[in-house]
Design a protein around this nucleic acid. Structure first.
Lengths: 200, 200
DNA sequence: GGACGAAGTGGAACGTGTTCCTATTATGTC
DNA sequence: GACATAATAGGAACACGTTCCACTTCGTCC
């Protein structure tokens, strides 16, 4: 586990290092946004971030780690934006659907970026478990927050429900980024799933 | 779409060609079973099938097409085995869980093969949409059959429920083959999802 | 300020998916 | 049987993820 982890902000002592890390993730973000998974080439990232290829690999041990970390940063950002305002909606399902729609619309506005990040997520193996896990927790917590705003205690069923919704969301996203379903179908399917799970 | 399709059995005129195709899929199957996605190397497949690399690419335009075609063949086989006997269980959820467990156990008995096929499935883009779609339909129909054995009419909710279960199944499978969750966790999560969806 | 280890640079090199080219072999037509 | 066309063999070549190495720079301790 310790053998192949991405360097987190906390691992980095100097300001220069934190800056390198940021430049790398910024470059990754831009390349992904412009050309998707295939455009995020390690040499291109290194060039754009003004960093040697070997250094890039010291910070992120693989392309997958790199993309999943970039996904994590974006997700944190989305989550903090979401946290600023209370979630509108009378019922849990209305609020969950609001969160999903908002998030999905954000992703669908950046198809290349979404394709790159989703592909990476799906291809990630055990060595990326840490990065994946933190993204998963973030998503689950966003969903449980929408279900029970401000709640401090959650039942097992709440968490399980959130995870199922997360699964559906991921499958729908994969189908969409691989061109196997349209944005409209994706939304409809997710709404349907929420309705089936949260009958309120 | 028409530009990059795998050659199907129907496309092939001579017996020699059908035999080449079969040798290729057999070689793919064996390599996948032994070493998973990474072991299915195009040169190795070509060698094992006694076929030139260029010929392999004439039959299957990419590694993904090759693996998804192999997946299709295996899935049809599994489905025909399942169809032979009535599904045991008193309630829809019991029957669905039976089907999921049986299928999952089959897959987990061949972890390398499953890993190779799931990876290919997740990485497949629009050019493989046809093959993917038929596999998806097969899974959905297996699940609706388990929910309502022998039913001729299905509600939209039945189909949506089956698709949600399929999504969870796929996510769980991905998590398992990528080493992010254990076989036991996979089963538990799927059972949980079914219970949440089919409260009977 | 000098020494030393860690981190970074620059780039060569390797593996594997994919493409491409030429020579050879099948297949079908007259 | 001679020929035209397509299919296949064999393998070189290219792209990109990844590894590795020799060298330089940076940070820290004396």
């Amino acid at each position: 586990m310790s053998s192949a982890n991405s360097l987190t902000v906390d691992d980095l002592g100097s300001a220069a290092q934190r800056d390198r890390r940021k430049r790398i993730l910024d470059a990754t973000y831009e390349l992904a946004k412009e050309g998707g998974f295939d455009a995020v080439q390690m040499r291109a990232v290194a060039d754009k971030a003004d960093v040697a290829l070997g250094t890039l690999y010291r910070y992120f041990p693989s392309k997958i780690h790199l993309l999943v970390s970039a996904l994590g940063r974006e997700f944190e950002h989305a989550e903090s934006v979401l946290r600023e305002k209370p979630i509108p909606g009378e019922t849990p399902s209305e609020r969950v659907i609001y969160v999903l729609k908002k998030t999905t619309r954000g992703l669908q506005g950046d198809p290349h970026l979404t394709e790159a990040l989703t592909r990476a997520f799906m291809f990630a193996d055990g060595s990326v478990a840490n990065e994946i896990h933190s993204v998963g927790m973030l998503l689950t917590s966003m969903l449980t927050q929408a279900m029970h705003p401000g709640a401090t205690e959650l039942t097992n069923d709440d968490i399980a429900t959130a995870r199922v919704i997360g699964d559906v969301w991921l499958s729908a996203l994969v189908a969409w980024v691989t061109g196997r379903s349209t944005a409209v179908e994706t939304s409809a399917h997710m709404e349907n799933a929420v309705r089936l799970l949260l009958r309120d």
